[in-house]
Design a protein around this nucleic acid. Sequence first.
DNA 1: TATTGTTATACTCTATAACTATA
DNA 2: TATAGTTATAGAGTATAACAATA
Lengths: 166, 166
Amino acid sequence: MAGKAQYEELIRQFSAFGAVKRELGRILPAECPSGSAAVLTLLGRHGDMRMSRLAELLAVDMSVTSRHVAHLADRGWIERSPDPADKRSRILRLTPAGQAQLDELSERTTQLLAHRLSDWTDEEVGQLTRLMTRLRASFDDCRSAAARSGAPPVPEQSTRTPAITT
Amino acid sequence: MAGKAQYEELIRQFSAFGAVKRELGRILPAECPSGSAAVLTLLGRHGDMRMSRLAELLAVDMSVTSRHVAHLADRGWIERSPDPADKRSRILRLTPAGQAQLDELSERTTQLLAHRLSDWTDEEVGQLTRLMTRLRASFDDCRSAAARSGAPPVPEQSTRTPAITT
DNA sequence: TATTGTTATACTCTATAACTATA
DNA sequence: TATAGTTATAGAGTATAACAATA
Protein backbone atom coordinates (compact mmCIF):
# COMPACT_ATOMS: atom_id res chain seq x y z
CA MET A 1 0.00 0.00 0.00
CA ALA A 2 1.63 3.23 -1.16
CA GLY A 3 1.21 6.86 -0.07
CA LYS A 4 -0.63 9.72 -1.69
CA ALA A 5 2.52 11.37 -3.04
CA GLN A 6 3.46 8.12 -4.78
CA TYR A 7 0.05 7.80 -6.37
CA GLU A 8 0.19 11.39 -7.57
CA GLU A 9 3.54 10.76 -9.18
CA LEU A 10 2.21 7.64 -10.86
CA ILE A 11 -0.79 9.53 -12.20
CA ARG A 12 1.55 12.15 -13.62
CA GLN A 13 3.45 9.44 -15.49
CA PHE A 14 0.18 8.03 -16.82
CA SER A 15 -0.60 11.41 -18.25
CA ALA A 16 2.86 11.89 -19.73
CA PHE A 17 2.64 8.48 -21.35
CA GLY A 18 0.37 10.01 -23.98
CA ALA A 19 3.45 11.46 -25.67
CA VAL A 20 4.88 7.97 -26.15
CA LYS A 21 1.62 6.70 -27.58
CA ARG A 22 1.46 9.61 -30.01
CA GLU A 23 4.99 9.02 -31.21
CA LEU A 24 4.18 5.37 -31.85
CA GLY A 25 1.05 6.46 -33.66
CA ARG A 26 3.02 8.59 -36.10
CA ILE A 27 4.85 5.65 -37.63
CA LEU A 28 1.74 3.58 -38.37
CA PRO A 29 1.08 2.64 -42.01
CA ALA A 30 -1.45 4.71 -43.92
CA GLU A 31 -5.07 3.62 -43.50
CA CYS A 32 -4.11 1.77 -40.35
CA PRO A 33 -4.48 4.01 -37.29
CA SER A 34 -3.95 2.69 -33.81
CA GLY A 35 -7.50 1.40 -33.36
CA SER A 36 -7.18 -0.75 -36.46
CA ALA A 37 -3.72 -1.84 -35.42
CA ALA A 38 -5.04 -3.07 -32.07
CA VAL A 39 -7.68 -5.18 -33.80
CA LEU A 40 -5.17 -6.72 -36.20
CA THR A 41 -2.82 -7.49 -33.32
CA LEU A 42 -5.49 -9.20 -31.24
CA LEU A 43 -6.76 -11.26 -34.17
CA GLY A 44 -3.21 -12.29 -34.94
CA ARG A 45 -2.57 -13.28 -31.38
CA HIS A 46 -5.84 -14.95 -30.40
CA GLY A 47 -7.10 -16.20 -33.74
CA ASP A 48 -10.64 -15.99 -35.14
CA MET A 49 -13.26 -14.60 -32.79
CA ARG A 50 -16.63 -12.91 -32.57
CA MET A 51 -17.24 -9.17 -32.24
CA SER A 52 -18.22 -9.44 -28.60
CA ARG A 53 -15.02 -11.28 -27.69
CA LEU A 54 -12.95 -8.71 -29.55
CA ALA A 55 -14.73 -5.86 -27.76
CA GLU A 56 -13.91 -7.53 -24.49
CA LEU A 57 -10.24 -7.87 -25.36
CA LEU A 58 -10.06 -4.28 -26.55
CA ALA A 59 -11.93 -3.16 -23.44
CA VAL A 60 -14.03 -0.73 -25.43
CA ASP A 61 -17.72 -0.54 -26.28
CA MET A 62 -18.90 -2.85 -29.03
CA SER A 63 -20.02 0.14 -31.09
CA VAL A 64 -16.39 1.24 -31.20
CA THR A 65 -15.25 -2.24 -32.08
CA SER A 66 -17.78 -2.36 -34.87
CA ARG A 67 -16.37 0.77 -36.42
CA HIS A 68 -12.78 -0.42 -36.30
CA VAL A 69 -13.77 -3.75 -37.75
CA ALA A 70 -15.73 -2.10 -40.56
CA HIS A 71 -12.67 -0.01 -41.39
CA LEU A 72 -10.51 -3.12 -41.65
CA ALA A 73 -13.10 -5.09 -43.60
CA ASP A 74 -13.43 -2.21 -46.12
CA ARG A 75 -9.71 -2.57 -46.82
CA GLY A 76 -9.84 -6.34 -47.16
CA TRP A 77 -7.71 -6.98 -44.10
CA ILE A 78 -10.30 -9.06 -42.27
CA GLU A 79 -13.34 -11.11 -43.21
CA ARG A 80 -16.65 -11.28 -41.37
CA SER A 81 -18.29 -14.63 -41.96
CA PRO A 82 -21.65 -15.56 -40.49
CA ASP A 83 -21.55 -17.75 -37.40
CA PRO A 84 -23.38 -21.01 -38.18
CA ALA A 85 -24.21 -21.43 -34.49
CA ASP A 86 -25.81 -18.00 -34.08
CA LYS A 87 -27.07 -16.04 -37.03
CA ARG A 88 -26.84 -12.74 -35.15
CA SER A 89 -23.13 -13.19 -34.80
CA ARG A 90 -20.15 -12.85 -37.09
CA ILE A 91 -16.78 -14.54 -37.00
CA LEU A 92 -13.79 -12.31 -37.65
CA ARG A 93 -10.73 -13.64 -39.45
CA LEU A 94 -7.50 -12.13 -40.72
CA THR A 95 -7.08 -12.32 -44.49
CA PRO A 96 -3.64 -12.87 -46.04
CA ALA A 97 -3.57 -9.14 -46.80
CA GLY A 98 -4.43 -8.48 -43.18
CA GLN A 99 -1.62 -10.73 -42.02
CA ALA A 100 0.77 -8.85 -44.29
CA GLN A 101 -0.42 -5.56 -42.85
CA LEU A 102 0.06 -6.93 -39.36
CA ASP A 103 3.59 -8.02 -40.21
CA GLU A 104 4.39 -4.57 -41.53
CA LEU A 105 2.96 -3.01 -38.40
CA SER A 106 4.92 -5.26 -36.13
CA GLU A 107 8.07 -4.54 -38.06
CA ARG A 108 7.73 -0.80 -37.73
CA THR A 109 6.78 -0.65 -34.07
CA THR A 110 9.42 -3.18 -33.13
CA GLN A 111 12.11 -1.17 -34.88
CA LEU A 112 11.03 2.05 -33.24
CA LEU A 113 11.13 0.45 -29.81
CA ALA A 114 14.48 -1.18 -30.50
CA HIS A 115 15.81 2.24 -31.39
CA ARG A 116 14.28 4.18 -28.51
CA LEU A 117 14.99 1.52 -25.89
CA SER A 118 18.43 0.62 -27.15
CA ASP A 119 19.94 1.20 -23.71
CA TRP A 120 17.34 -0.84 -21.84
CA THR A 121 18.24 -4.34 -20.76
CA ASP A 122 16.14 -7.31 -21.65
CA GLU A 123 15.17 -7.56 -18.00
CA GLU A 124 14.04 -3.94 -17.78
CA VAL A 125 11.79 -4.27 -20.81
CA GLY A 126 10.33 -7.40 -19.29
CA GLN A 127 9.79 -5.68 -15.98
CA LEU A 128 7.89 -2.80 -17.53
CA THR A 129 5.79 -5.24 -19.54
CA ARG A 130 4.94 -7.28 -16.46
CA LEU A 131 4.04 -4.26 -14.37
CA MET A 132 1.79 -2.83 -17.06
CA THR A 133 0.14 -6.21 -17.50
CA ARG A 134 -0.48 -6.38 -13.80
CA LEU A 135 -1.77 -2.82 -13.76
CA ARG A 136 -4.43 -3.71 -16.28
CA ALA A 137 -5.29 -6.83 -14.35
CA SER A 138 -5.67 -4.83 -11.14
CA PHE A 139 -8.19 -2.58 -12.83
CA ASP A 140 -10.04 -5.50 -14.41
CA ASP A 141 -10.06 -7.62 -11.27
CA CYS A 142 -11.68 -4.87 -9.34
CA ARG A 143 -14.68 -4.95 -11.63
CA SER A 144 -15.03 -8.73 -11.47
CA ALA A 145 -14.48 -8.78 -7.72
CA ALA A 146 -17.19 -6.19 -7.21
CA ALA A 147 -19.56 -8.22 -9.40
CA ARG A 148 -18.82 -11.41 -7.48
CA SER A 149 -19.32 -9.89 -4.04
CA GLY A 150 -23.12 -9.91 -4.11
CA ALA A 151 -24.35 -6.31 -4.31
CA PRO A 152 -22.61 -4.86 -7.39
CA PRO A 153 -21.70 -1.21 -6.64
CA VAL A 154 -20.12 -0.90 -10.05
CA PRO A 155 -22.83 -0.96 -12.76
CA GLU A 156 -21.64 -4.28 -14.23
CA GLN A 157 -19.13 -2.79 -16.73
CA SER A 158 -19.95 -4.65 -19.92
CA THR A 159 -18.52 -4.13 -23.37
CA ARG A 160 -21.64 -2.60 -24.76
CA THR A 161 -24.27 0.02 -24.22
CA PRO A 162 -26.84 -1.34 -21.78
CA ALA A 163 -30.02 -2.42 -23.53
CA ILE A 164 -32.93 -0.12 -22.78
CA THR A 165 -35.59 -2.28 -21.16
CA THR A 166 -38.60 -0.10 -21.82
CA MET B 1 18.61 -5.02 -25.90
CA ALA B 2 15.45 -7.10 -26.07
CA GLY B 3 13.99 -9.34 -28.78
CA LYS B 4 11.13 -8.78 -31.18
CA ALA B 5 8.67 -10.89 -29.22
CA GLN B 6 9.35 -8.84 -26.11
CA TYR B 7 8.78 -5.59 -27.95
CA GLU B 8 5.54 -6.90 -29.40
CA GLU B 9 4.30 -7.82 -25.95
CA LEU B 10 5.24 -4.38 -24.64
CA ILE B 11 3.37 -2.71 -27.48
CA ARG B 12 0.31 -4.79 -26.66
CA GLN B 13 0.42 -3.55 -23.09
CA PHE B 14 0.76 0.03 -24.30
CA SER B 15 -2.42 -0.45 -26.26
CA ALA B 16 -4.28 -2.11 -23.39
CA PHE B 17 -3.24 0.72 -21.12
CA GLY B 18 -5.93 2.84 -22.75
CA ALA B 19 -8.53 1.03 -20.64
CA VAL B 20 -6.82 2.21 -17.46
CA LYS B 21 -6.68 5.76 -18.72
CA ARG B 22 -10.37 5.70 -19.58
CA GLU B 23 -11.34 4.40 -16.18
CA LEU B 24 -9.38 7.19 -14.54
CA GLY B 25 -11.05 9.64 -16.88
CA ARG B 26 -14.51 8.59 -15.72
CA ILE B 27 -14.01 9.81 -12.17
CA LEU B 28 -12.86 13.31 -13.09
CA PRO B 29 -14.92 16.24 -11.79
CA ALA B 30 -17.39 17.85 -14.14
CA GLU B 31 -15.93 20.52 -16.43
CA CYS B 32 -12.48 19.13 -15.79
CA PRO B 33 -11.55 16.52 -18.40
CA SER B 34 -8.13 14.92 -18.50
CA GLY B 35 -6.54 17.67 -20.59
CA SER B 36 -7.53 20.29 -18.04
CA ALA B 37 -6.48 18.04 -15.21
CA ALA B 38 -3.00 17.69 -16.69
CA VAL B 39 -2.61 21.47 -16.88
CA LEU B 40 -3.73 21.97 -13.28
CA THR B 41 -1.36 19.26 -12.12
CA LEU B 42 1.64 20.74 -13.89
CA LEU B 43 0.91 24.24 -12.65
CA GLY B 44 0.54 22.92 -9.13
CA ARG B 45 3.79 21.05 -9.36
CA HIS B 46 6.02 23.50 -11.22
CA GLY B 47 4.43 26.83 -10.28
CA ASP B 48 3.70 29.77 -12.58
CA MET B 49 4.92 29.46 -16.13
CA ARG B 50 4.44 30.64 -19.70
CA MET B 51 2.34 28.91 -22.33
CA SER B 52 5.39 27.67 -24.20
CA ARG B 53 6.86 26.04 -21.11
CA LEU B 54 3.54 24.38 -20.35
CA ALA B 55 3.26 23.06 -23.90
CA GLU B 56 6.73 21.59 -23.53
CA LEU B 57 5.83 19.85 -20.27
CA LEU B 58 2.59 18.54 -21.72
CA ALA B 59 4.45 17.45 -24.86
CA VAL B 60 1.63 18.66 -27.08
CA ASP B 61 1.35 21.44 -29.65
CA MET B 62 0.89 24.92 -28.25
CA SER B 63 -2.44 25.22 -30.02
CA VAL B 64 -3.69 22.35 -27.89
CA THR B 65 -2.24 23.91 -24.77
CA SER B 66 -3.95 27.17 -25.61
CA ARG B 67 -7.33 25.47 -25.77
CA HIS B 68 -6.91 23.68 -22.47
CA VAL B 69 -5.75 26.87 -20.82
CA ALA B 70 -8.69 28.84 -22.22
CA HIS B 71 -11.04 26.21 -20.82
CA LEU B 72 -9.51 26.57 -17.36
CA ALA B 73 -9.40 30.38 -17.52
CA ASP B 74 -13.09 30.46 -18.49
CA ARG B 75 -13.86 28.63 -15.26
CA GLY B 76 -11.69 30.88 -13.13
CA TRP B 77 -9.24 28.13 -12.24
CA ILE B 78 -6.18 29.86 -13.68
CA GLU B 79 -5.20 33.45 -14.50
CA ARG B 80 -3.28 34.66 -17.51
CA SER B 81 -1.34 37.80 -16.64
CA PRO B 82 0.79 39.65 -19.18
CA ASP B 83 4.52 39.02 -18.97
CA PRO B 84 6.24 42.35 -18.24
CA ALA B 85 9.40 41.08 -19.92
CA ASP B 86 7.72 40.11 -23.20
CA LYS B 87 4.38 41.56 -24.18
CA ARG B 88 3.65 38.64 -26.49
CA SER B 89 3.76 36.26 -23.60
CA ARG B 90 1.41 35.39 -20.76
CA ILE B 91 2.16 34.03 -17.31
CA LEU B 92 -0.16 31.28 -16.10
CA ARG B 93 -1.03 30.99 -12.43
CA LEU B 94 -3.39 28.81 -10.41
CA THR B 95 -6.17 30.73 -8.66
CA PRO B 96 -7.42 29.64 -5.22
CA ALA B 97 -10.39 28.05 -6.99
CA GLY B 98 -7.97 26.26 -9.28
CA GLN B 99 -5.99 24.98 -6.33
CA ALA B 100 -9.21 23.70 -4.79
CA GLN B 101 -10.10 21.95 -8.04
CA LEU B 102 -6.63 20.44 -8.14
CA ASP B 103 -7.02 19.18 -4.57
CA GLU B 104 -10.33 17.58 -5.44
CA LEU B 105 -8.78 15.98 -8.49
CA SER B 106 -5.87 14.63 -6.56
CA GLU B 107 -8.19 13.27 -3.89
CA ARG B 108 -10.31 11.36 -6.37
CA THR B 109 -7.53 9.87 -8.46
CA THR B 110 -5.52 8.98 -5.40
CA GLN B 111 -8.45 7.15 -3.87
CA LEU B 112 -9.15 5.26 -7.06
CA LEU B 113 -5.53 4.14 -7.30
CA ALA B 114 -5.43 3.20 -3.62
CA HIS B 115 -8.48 1.04 -4.22
CA ARG B 116 -7.34 -0.57 -7.43
CA LEU B 117 -3.73 -1.09 -6.37
CA SER B 118 -4.54 -2.16 -2.84
CA ASP B 119 -2.50 -5.34 -3.21
CA TRP B 120 0.55 -3.61 -4.70
CA THR B 121 3.51 -2.95 -2.46
CA ASP B 122 5.03 0.46 -2.09
CA GLU B 123 8.05 -0.80 -3.97
CA GLU B 124 6.03 -2.08 -6.90
CA VAL B 125 4.23 1.21 -7.34
CA GLY B 126 7.58 2.97 -7.23
CA GLN B 127 9.04 0.58 -9.76
CA LEU B 128 6.25 1.16 -12.25
CA THR B 129 6.55 4.91 -11.77
CA ARG B 130 10.30 4.81 -12.35
CA LEU B 131 10.05 2.65 -15.45
CA MET B 132 7.36 4.85 -17.00
CA THR B 133 9.41 7.94 -16.21
CA ARG B 134 12.39 6.37 -17.88
CA LEU B 135 10.28 5.31 -20.84
CA ARG B 136 9.27 8.88 -21.45
CA ALA B 137 12.86 10.00 -21.07
CA SER B 138 14.04 7.41 -23.59
CA PHE B 139 11.62 8.78 -26.14
CA ASP B 140 12.55 12.39 -25.39
CA ASP B 141 16.29 11.78 -25.33
CA CYS B 142 16.14 10.31 -28.75
CA ARG B 143 14.82 13.55 -30.13
CA SER B 144 17.40 15.68 -28.37
CA ALA B 145 20.21 13.30 -29.28
CA ALA B 146 19.20 13.43 -32.93
CA ALA B 147 19.12 17.23 -32.78
CA ARG B 148 22.56 17.38 -31.18
CA SER B 149 24.21 15.03 -33.66
CA GLY B 150 24.46 17.52 -36.53
CA ALA B 151 22.16 16.37 -39.33
CA PRO B 152 18.71 16.06 -37.70
CA PRO B 153 16.87 13.07 -39.22
CA VAL B 154 13.88 13.82 -36.97
CA PRO B 155 12.16 17.06 -38.08
CA GLU B 156 13.11 18.96 -34.90
CA GLN B 157 9.99 18.00 -32.88
CA SER B 158 8.99 21.29 -31.32
CA THR B 159 5.91 22.09 -29.28
CA ARG B 160 4.31 24.19 -31.97
CA THR B 161 3.37 24.23 -35.59
CA PRO B 162 6.45 25.22 -37.61
CA ALA B 163 6.26 28.81 -38.78
CA ILE B 164 5.69 29.08 -42.52
CA THR B 165 8.67 30.97 -43.93
CA THR B 166 7.13 32.19 -47.15
C1' DT C 1 -37.94 -10.41 -23.74
C1' DA C 2 -32.88 -10.50 -24.21
C1' DT C 3 -28.74 -10.46 -27.06
C1' DT C 4 -25.63 -9.44 -31.22
C1' DG C 5 -24.21 -6.20 -33.98
C1' DT C 6 -24.72 -1.62 -36.62
C1' DT C 7 -25.40 3.22 -37.12
C1' DA C 8 -26.15 8.20 -35.72
C1' DT C 9 -24.69 11.66 -32.73
C1' DA C 10 -21.76 14.01 -29.62
C1' DC C 11 -17.56 14.90 -26.89
C1' DT C 12 -12.42 14.95 -25.99
C1' DC C 13 -7.85 15.14 -27.54
C1' DT C 14 -4.67 16.15 -31.07
C1' DA C 15 -2.24 18.35 -35.19
C1' DT C 16 -1.89 21.62 -39.16
C1' DA C 17 -2.41 26.05 -40.96
C1' DA C 18 -3.43 30.80 -40.88
C1' DC C 19 -3.56 34.96 -38.28
C1' DT C 20 -2.40 38.88 -34.69
C1' DA C 21 0.72 41.20 -31.93
C1' DT C 22 5.23 41.83 -30.47
C1' DA C 23 10.53 41.16 -30.75
C1' DT D 1 12.02 38.13 -40.32
C1' DA D 2 11.08 35.30 -36.26
C1' DT D 3 8.52 34.17 -32.06
C1' DA D 4 4.30 33.84 -28.54
C1' DG D 5 -0.08 32.82 -28.55
C1' DT D 6 -4.92 32.26 -30.61
C1' DT D 7 -8.36 30.35 -33.53
C1' DA D 8 -10.45 27.47 -37.36
C1' DT D 9 -10.64 23.17 -39.23
C1' DA D 10 -10.07 18.32 -39.59
C1' DG D 11 -9.05 13.50 -37.99
C1' DA D 12 -8.96 9.75 -34.52
C1' DG D 13 -10.95 7.49 -30.40
C1' DT D 14 -14.62 6.79 -27.39
C1' DA D 15 -19.46 6.51 -25.27
C1' DT D 16 -24.57 6.71 -25.40
C1' DA D 17 -28.74 5.80 -27.58
C1' DA D 18 -31.68 3.89 -30.96
C1' DC D 19 -32.37 0.34 -34.27
C1' DA D 20 -32.59 -4.38 -36.95
C1' DA D 21 -32.19 -9.19 -36.83
C1' DT D 22 -32.09 -13.26 -34.27
C1' DA D 23 -32.38 -16.23 -29.79
